[in-house]
């Protein structure tokens, strides 16, 4: 039979074993992202505590939180979509981090470039939004409406930054972008070549992470943490997991765009932690902006800086 011959030894010799490596990468990348994300969460809480002259949580606090939440004996669900929302929130990021090249692993970065990544990270948000909607709590809906508005605000400078970088290097492929930046040392890093865009990107990062002054959509005292109002147990735990991925994705993306990605794991993690520390440090000294103020701010300063940056890039 035909199909048998295809599986014969000749065929086997032709089988490319690189796919095994790829599978390994696809398994490892989310795992690493999660672990690094836990570290980032810890760092954020530590920074906050230090700035408030507190000791802060112990080393494994983020992990304990997640374990505790999953181990809750009663779990309040508001329906299938509530649950699927959390699944999408986690799953979307698990998929998205495979598009982010890290030292030694490119994952699927070549199959979908920057734009695909950008839109892939919206899937978790959409999932979360659906889940929150199913909770049937207006606080949650208000939170989502604010979160989406915030996305509208920070995505404008974000896409300007992405355009600038992609146009500068003439590619949407993150692997290529990183290679191009690493080619000439620090001088070819994005932040050196396009300082204005890097600044605008930092602005956008602050909004993307939803840190103060841009955390109107959780606003605990006002709308009872908004989207998370009905999230308890493993639902909240899922969101904690998602937060790890989110921090990781934001940090790595910025590093890949402006700081030349990672030459090795040491410098890579260092850059990621430094980049993520900046918004957190800024956050702790700010109160909260109202939604419209946030939108106004994002559409004004980072956008203008970004456009100026593009003007430099295009000339």
């Amino acid at each position: 039979m035909d199909w048998l011959s295809a599986v014969s030894l000749d065929g086997l010799a032709a089988v490319d074993f690189r796919w095994l490596g790829l599978v390994l990468e696809l398994i490892l990348m989310p795992l690493i992202a999660f672990v690094v994300g836990l570290g980032l969460v810890l760092m954020l809480r530590k920074i906050a505590a230090r700035l408030q002259r507190r000791v802060g949580p112990p080393l494994l606090q983020p992990l304990w939180d997640i374990i505790k939440l999953h181990a809750k004996e009663t779990q309040t669900s508001h329906g299938l979509i509530h649950e699927i929302g959390i699944v999408m929130a986690i799953g979307g990021y698990v998929a998205a981090v495979t598009l982010l090249p890290v030292p030694g692993m490119n994952g699927l970065a070549a199959q979908g470039g920057l734009i695909a990544l950008l839109y892939m990270t919206m899937i978790p948000s959409l999932g979360l939004a659906l889940g929150v909607g199913q909770c049937a709590n207006p606080n949650g809906s208000i939170g989502i409406s604010r979160a989406l508005t915030a996305m509208l605000a920070y995505d404008v400078p974000m896409v300007i930054v992405i355009f600038g970088v992609a146009f500068h290097f003439g590619s949407l492929n993150l692997v290529y972008l990183i290679a191009a930046q690493q080619a000439g040392g620090i001088a070819t890093w994005g932040i050196v070549q396009m300082p204005l865009l890097a600044l605008a990107g930092l602005f956008a990062l602050q909004g993307m992470l939803g840190k103060q002054p841009f955390e109107i959509y959780v606003a605990p005292a006002e709308i009872a943490t908004g989207p998370m109002v009905e999230m308890g147990g493993k639902f909240l735990g899922g969101l904690f997991v998602m937060q790890c991925f989110q921090l990781y994705t934001a940090g790595v993306l910025y590093v890949a765009l402006f700081l030349g990605g990672g030459e090795n794991w040491l410098t890579f993690l260092f850059k990621v932690f430094v980049v993520t520390a900046i918004p957190m440090t800024i956050a702790m000294v700010f109160p909260r902006y109202r939604t419209e103020d946030m939108v106004r701010l994002f559409w004004k300063w980072p956008t203008m800086i970004g456009l100026l940056g593009i003007a430099f890039v295009m000339n």
Partner: peptide, 14 residues
């Protein structure tokens, strides 16, 4: 927070 205790706002989370 040293002890892992932190305030939350909704009964579902607490």
């Amino acid at each position: 927070e040293r002890l892992g205790i932190q305030p939350m706002v909704s009964p579902r989370q607490a």
